[in-house]
C-alpha cells in the first residue's frame, strides 16, 4: 500500500459512448489526471445526486493517490478503466487527448 494519502475522484460512463469519464469540477472529462480531487469521501459522495442521467450512467466515487504528481486509481479495476484493457492497446492508453466523446 502506498504511503500517500487516499483522495477521491468521481467517475462514471458517458451515456452515449459508454466511455469512462471523470468529474472535472464543471464537466465530465476523459482523463483521470484532469479529475477534480476531493480530500474527503463525503464531499465527493454529496455530489453524486446532482448529475444529469442523460449525460452519464452510474456515477460513483473511487479512491486515488497522487504518486509523484500522478493520480493513480487504488483498485486494479479502476486502474484498468483509467488505462484500458491489458490485451490490446485500446481505450484510454491509445487515445489522443483531443478524442471527443
Amino acid at each position: 500500500m502506498s504511503a500517500h494519502p487516499i483522495q477521491y475522484v468521481i467517475t462514471a460512463n458517458d451515456f452515449h459512448s459508454g466511455a469512462v469519464v471523470f468529474w472535472g469540477g464543471d464537466a465530465w472529462l476523459l482523463r483521470l489526471r484532469d479529475a477534480c480531487v476531493f480530500e474527503r469521501a463525503e464531499d465527493a459522495e454529496a455530489m453524486l445526486t446532482q448529475f444529469r442521467p442523460e449525460q452519464v450512467v452510474g456515477a460513483y466515487v473511487i479512491e486515488v493517490v497522487a504518486d509523484a504528481g500522478q493520480l493513480q486509481a487504488q483498485h486494479i479495476r479502476e486502474a484498468i478503466r483509467a488505462r484500458g484493457p491489458s490485451n490490446y492497446f485500446h481505450g484510454k492508453q491509445a487515445e489522443e487527448d483531443h478524442v471527443s466523446l
Binding site: S17, G18, A19, P53, V57, R77, R81, P85
Partner: peptide, 22 residues
C-alpha cells in the same frame, strides 16, 4: 425513461454497459 427502466430493455437487446464502453 429512467436508466433503471431502460436497463432491462437494452439488456433484452444485448446491450451491456461494460468497463470502457457499451
Amino acid at each position: 425513461l429512467t436508466e433503471d427502466e431502460f436497463k432491462p430493455l437494452r439488456l433484452q437487446n444485448g446491450v451491456y454497459l461494460q468497463l470502457h464502453a457499451y
